[in-house]
């Protein structure tokens, strides 16, 4: 089945239709998706600003990442769950709008960047995170993360503007 066909099945599903036609549920799910941004994109923004040396630069990266990681992951779980719900409700309409796959690709790349950073750098943070100047690769991960999540938020907001019938 093609993406378009899968999207149509989701769109026509009972769950998708119910959410799309609801008076309160859809706005609430969308509202929670937006609030979730503060816990996911917002907290990662702070971590990225630390990696590029702009926020709490005297604090070792591990001292920020370790306590915030559970909140970050919880925030992303919430944002992704509400995001999937919103997608199911509007699947057939959004799948044909180019900024939508752009958003998904940017999320995937941001996830890969985060995973790479976790595996290659975060594990041995004691070796590098108290230095005044952080390794180039670490700064790159921060900049890449900022850029990618920026693309995600921008393309997300543009979905209703660049497609018909939303």
């Amino acid at each position: 089945m093609s993406f378009v066909e899968i999207a149509q099945v989701l769109y026509d599903s009972q769950a998708g239709t119910a959410l799309r036609e609801s008076v309160y549920a859809f706005p609430i799910v969308e509202g929670v998706h937006l609030i979730g941004l503060a816990f996911s994109v917002g907290l990662i923004l702070l971590i990225d600003l630390r990696l590029i040396g702009v926020f709490l630069r005297n604090v070792p990266v591990a001292d920020l990442l370790q306590p915030l990681r559970p909140w970050l992951l919880g925030g992303f779980a919430l944002t992704i769950l509400t995001g999937i719900s919103l997608f199911v409700a509007e699947a057939a309409k959004v799948i044909i709008i180019p900024v939508f796959p752009l958003k998904i690709v940017a999320i995937a790349l941001a996830g890969i960047n985060a995973l790479w950073f976790e595996v290659k750098w975060a594990r041995r943070s004691a070796e590098w995170d108290a230095k005044p100047v952080l390794p180039g690769a670490v700064k790159f991960a921060g900049i890449a993360s900022l850029a990618l999540w920026g693309v995600v938020v921008i393309s997300g907001r543009l979905i209703p503007y660049l497609g018909a019938g939303l």
């Binding site: 503060a38 917002g42 938020v153 543009l158 503007y161």
Partner: peptide, 21 residues
């Protein structure tokens, strides 16, 4: 209008995350 909303979302994230932390 979309650009205005994006600046609104940016400001929102800056304020909410600061209050959150």
């Amino acid at each position: 209008g979309a650009v205005a909303q994006l600046f609104h979302i940016t400001g929102l994230i800056l304020v909410l995350t600061s209050i959150l932390v």
